[in-house]
Design a protein around this nucleic acid. Structure first.
Length: 294
DNA sequence: CGGCTTTGACCAGCGC
DNA sequence: GCGCTGGTCAAAGCCG
């Protein structure tokens, strides 16, 4: 994936996009799996899919919608991602997260600025004698970065992991601050930034940076399914298999919860037990994930 | 008491 | 060199 921008005609679609992106599947893999699979049935009941995706990804409370996501594994971060400028039913998503990270900001400069600042600090804040050559090399090894744009009333969305807030900064030209979180697990340096979109304050932009080197904490609030999926991406991007999605479906009512009572919204369980959304899940995550299961 | 949030200070990069 | 900005630190306070 490069700077290519993909258009989706329904804002539920970016979640399917993010799945491919999160799995690091090459474009050939996408085409072989076929977008047709993802088209299957999606237009029939967008609201239901929307609800399903929210719960499956667990990134938002019931009132929120994950309506865009992007991933940044390399340095291609300057593609268009003018999501909030789109109509409500048409969203563009791209492999770039820069615009999602910092709407309206100058991409290249601020991006490099951020990385340099982070690298310098992460390596050795106290010692000023940093080997510049080494530093430059490490600059190239950028952490994978994924951003989600989620319509939500709350800033900090549950994703299954435990986070500690370590900073908050006012955002230039925005009344909404940006919050900085770090994974609380020892030796896990995954970070995330949370801010509200300047264009649409109801939209929360969550940017994950780094890879978790540990399993999802259990006995947490939020969605274990989402955490499992997110974990699968960052622990091993190619390990996100149909089993994962089946687990997601099971966790949401097609089986006994395997992770304990972690669902923040018990009512969602009830919906899934009715079965209709399991079918929707199969529609969204089609044969590649489900066909071998029955 | 441990874990978390808050918040002012600090640092580094960049533009002028 | 200076000011601006983003990102992080760390002390203090809060909370279960």
């Amino acid at each position: 994936m490069s700077n290519e921008t993909k258009d989706f005609y329904n804002y539920q679609y970016p979640s399917s996009f993010s799945l491919y992106e999160m799995m690091n599947l090459p474009s050939s893999a996408q085409s072989s799996y076929g977008n047709n699979g993802f088209d299957h049935g999606l237009h029939s009941s967008p609201g239901a899919h929307d609800s399903l995706l929210q719960k499956t990804f667990g990134l938002s409370p019931p009132s929120s919608e994950v309506f865009n996501s992007s991933i940044d594994q390399e340095s291609n971060r300057c593609a268009t991602n003018d999501v909030t400028g789109e109509t409500p039913t048409r969203v563009s998503a791209s492999s770039s997260s820069s615009e999602a990270d910092h709407p309206g900001e100058d991409c290249g400069k601020s991006q490099r600025k951020r990385e340099l600042a982070e690298d310098g600090r992460e390596e050795n804040r106290s010692s000023k004698t940093v080997n510049k050559t080494k530093k430059k090399e490490e600059e190239k090894e950028r952490e994978p970065r994924v951003s989600f744009m989620t319509k939500s009333e709350v800033d900090h969305l549950e994703d299954g992991y435990r986070w500690r807030k370590y900073g908050q900064k006012a955002v230039k030209n925005s009344p909404y601050p940006r919050s900085y979180y770090r994974c609380t697990t020892q030796k896990c340096n995954v970070k995330k930034r949370v801010e509200r979109s300047l264009q649409d304050p109801t939209v929360v932009i969550t940017t994950y940076e780094g890879q978790h080197n540990h399993p999802i904490p259990t006995n947490l609030r939020g969605s274990s399914a989402a955490a499992a999926m997110y974990s699968a991406n960052f622990m091993n991007p190619r390990s996100l298999t149909h089993d994962m999605f089946r687990t997601a479906a099971l966790d949401y009512g097609y089986g006994q919860s395997g992770y304990g009572n972690v669902n923040a919204n018990p009512s969602s369980h009830q919906e899934y037990r009715q079965g209709s959304e399991y079918e929707l899940l199969k529609d969204i995550f089609p044969s590649i994930f489900f066909k071998q299961e029955h």
